[in-house]
Amino acid sequence: MALFLQHKTDDIQWAVWKMEESLEVLLALLPDARRVFCEQELNRFVSERRKMEWLSVRVLLYAMLQEDKEIGYSPEGKPYLTDHSFFISISHTKGYVAVMLASFTPAGIDIEQYAQRVHKVSDRYIRSDEQTEPYQGDMTWGLLLHWSAKEAVFKRMENADADLRKLRLTHFIPQEQGTFQVQELATEQQELYSVGYRICPDFVLTWTLS
């Protein structure tokens, strides 16, 4: 079983699954009825990577709860549990998937693989009044945290504006793990969201706190 990371508090939990198994091995980790359903659903996908991501999310959800749950999607594409037992958020990057569950408020989680491409598109998500800081001398980590945190908050918000520059991170010095705040500037309320983060050797993970 490739349960890579797991975190749980009274009202939220998240986990990261490292995608190492074959589809056949993943299917065997599910209860019988869910396995049959997933085998049929996999036929909808052409890409092997997409099949692996989709199935790994279902296996991870079952590993987290040890209960069979079904994931539905809103017209906007947001995932939800059909029994409404938890709010759910899903993210994936090369080699990993992440799932977050929250008891009382909508959830937002994002996982981003370490990659230099964040430098090329930084004008799409970094504001002129934001200050990014390096982690262990590498600015890529700081940029990744900005990108990932804004994606997580975007998932958490209702009817969010897709322009990530309408979200502003408070200044922070990246550590291996910690928290910071993100303010949305798209509405009159200009709500402030607390975000947890963790830097791993090949990815960053961010998630909204209640």
Rank of each mutant, 00 (worst) to 15 (best):
L60Y: 02
A98H: 02
S22K: 10
A33C: 11
V46T: 12
A102I: 01
I90Y: 03
A33W: 09
Y135E: 07
V57Y: 02
F37P: 00
Q40A: 14
K94W: 08
L42C: 07
R49T: 13
P79M: 04
E76D: 13
S85K: 09
Y80F: 15
E130F: 10
F104K: 15
D129S: 10
E48H: 14
P75W: 04
S22D: 11
L101F: 03
E133C: 14
P31T: 10
Q66F: 07
Q40W: 05
S74A: 15
L29A: 14
L145R: 01
D110N: 12
P75Q: 05
S85E: 11
P31G: 11
E151D: 07
H119V: 13
W17E: 11
R58W: 01
Y125L: 08
S122N: 14
E21T: 09
F104V: 12
E112G: 06
G77F: 04
A33G: 04
P31L: 12
E76I: 03
I111M: 02
L55K: 02
F45H: 05
K18F: 06
L101G: 01
Q116V: 10
A152V: 03
V121A: 09
I88W: 01
F87N: 02
G72K: 09
L81F: 08
L101T: 00
E48M: 13
G72S: 14
E67I: 08
A98M: 05
F154G: 01
A28D: 15
E67G: 04
E39T: 11
Q113T: 15
N43E: 13
V99H: 00
L55C: 05
A107Y: 02
A107F: 04
Q116T: 12
F154I: 02
E53Y: 06
E53V: 07
P106S: 13
H84R: 13
P106Q: 10
D129M: 08
L29H: 15
K120V: 08
E48K: 13
V97D: 00
P106V: 07
G142I: 00
L144G: 04
P106W: 05
I71W: 01
W147E: 00
E39I: 05
R127P: 07
S89E: 05
E53C: 05
W54V: 03
L42W: 06
T132N: 12
L101W: 01
I111Q: 00
M139G: 03
H84E: 07
F86Y: 15
A98S: 11
F104S: 14
K51M: 11
S56G: 12
P75N: 06
I109L: 07
D68Y: 06
P106T: 07
G137I: 11
R35W: 04
W141H: 09
G72D: 12
W54M: 07
Y62T: 03
L55S: 02
K51G: 08
T82H: 06
L30I: 03
D110T: 11
S85P: 02
E130I: 08
A149W: 00
P75H: 04
L29V: 06
Y73H: 14
Y80H: 13
G72L: 09
E24V: 14
H84V: 00
K78M: 09
Y125K: 08
Q66A: 13
S47H: 09
W141R: 08
A115R: 15
